[in-house]
């Protein structure tokens, strides 16, 4: 008789509680041996999703490679808060060049490692959404199409936070930013704009593309670990709330991230060679209002005219249909 696996959930969530798991199944972050690649003492804001995302991802990559990781970093919050001269929070070899070239610099490092026959050392490039979907897009696309041996991690907080919350091509419709203010007839970021980089990455037919969220730690770490076991160009798009830019409470970072997944606004999936191979189903679908109302960037949508919320709900519903997120 086969044993039915036991599922443990923390109260009110569908997240597996670490303490109830066998030690071998616990997250990298739960392990005292984690490398703390992005060490404490950095200057990120309270509740910074990007700092969490980077630490989770790089520590997982470190475990997967037996601590053989070199990382590049686009200009942005992560770069600025982690390396205020003369200090650095990085416990790994790390390099920042300019805003738009993190993928290319990583390509160069990978080429150098190849020529020096250091195949055990792996390269990760990191950027925010602006450094990835906008200014770094050409270099990223080039890295993808050459299938360079680089894992690119995009920490998506949906705007240019480092420069003071301006719109990027990852800013969602309806969101207020400093350059899409909540005034006028069509407040916030316009509907029908923006780009979905995971799908664009898939169009390059690269070996591995995944989306992940700081609210789903097991999943995020598993995807990074899987990516480190693959050679060639890989891309993981990590959803990282920004309390400052989103106007959410620093204590709600994980909650907001989880709601993005459960509303269908941020689907979690994996794709190999351009084909979706797995997705995380939504167990308990939540209306988008629950997600939107925690963030001041959407506060203007809650006036008398709620049509924008309905349109965002349509986007979420479309995602659920498109990615097959409804649990059977």
């Amino acid at each position: 008789m086969s044993l039915q696996p036991v599922k443990f959930y923390q109260t009110g969530t569908f997240t597996v509680g670490n303490r109830l798991l066998d030690e071998s199944l616990r997250t990298v972050q739960a392990n005292m041996q984690r490398t703390n690649s992005l060490n404490s003492g950095h200057r990120a804001c309270q509740g910074c999703g990007e700092a969490l995302g980077a630490r989770y991802a790089i520590d997982a990559a470190m475990r997967a490679t037996k601590n053989r990781v070199i990382a590049t970093n686009a200009t942005g919050c992560l770069e600025v808060f982690s390396t205020p001269y003369p200090e650095t929070s990085w416990q790994i070899p790390w390099m920042h060049s300019v805003f738009g070239n993190a993928a290319s610099v990583a390509t160069g490092i990978a080429a150098a490692l190849k020529v020096k026959k250091k195949s055990d050392v792996r390269v990760i490039a990191q950027g925010g959404d602006g450094g990835t979907t906008d200014i770094g897009f050409a270099c990223l696309s080039g890295m993808f199409e050459r299938n360079d041996d680089v894992l690119y991690l995009c920490y998506d907080n949906e705007a240019y936070m480092n420069t003071g919350v301006q719109r990027s091509s990852a800013t969602p419709p309806g969101a207020r930013t400093a350059t899409t203010p909540a005034v006028g007839i069509h407040p916030g970021n316009a509907f029908g704009t923006g780009k979905n980089l995971p799908l664009i990455a898939m169009a390059h037919q690269i070996p591995y593309v995944a989306t992940a969220s700081v609210a789903n730690l097991h999943d995020l770490e598993a995807k990074v670990e899987k990516a480190m076991g693959i050679c060639g160009a890989r891309y993981i798009h990590i959803y990282v709330p920004c309390p400052l830019g989103w106007g959410s409470s620093p204590s709600d970072t994980i909650k907001v991230a989880r709601l993005a997944v459960e509303t269908g606004l941020f689907p979690l999936f994996e794709a190999e060679h351009g084909e979706i191979v797995s997705r995380i189903p939504i167990r308990n679908k939540v209306p988008v209002e629950e997600y939107l109302k925690l963030q001041k960037r959407f506060a203007h949508l809650f006036g008398e005219d709620r049509s924008a919320i309905a349109m965002i709900q349509e986007i979420a519903d479309r995602n659920i249909r498109k990615f097959g997120l409804e649990e059977a």
Binding site: M95, S97, A106, T107, G108, I109, A111
Partner: peptide, 11 residues
């Protein structure tokens, strides 16, 4: 940029 990365890695 690729040259910058490669040079930083000692090539």
């Amino acid at each position: 940029s690729v040259a910058i990365g490669a040079s930083s890695a000692g090539a």
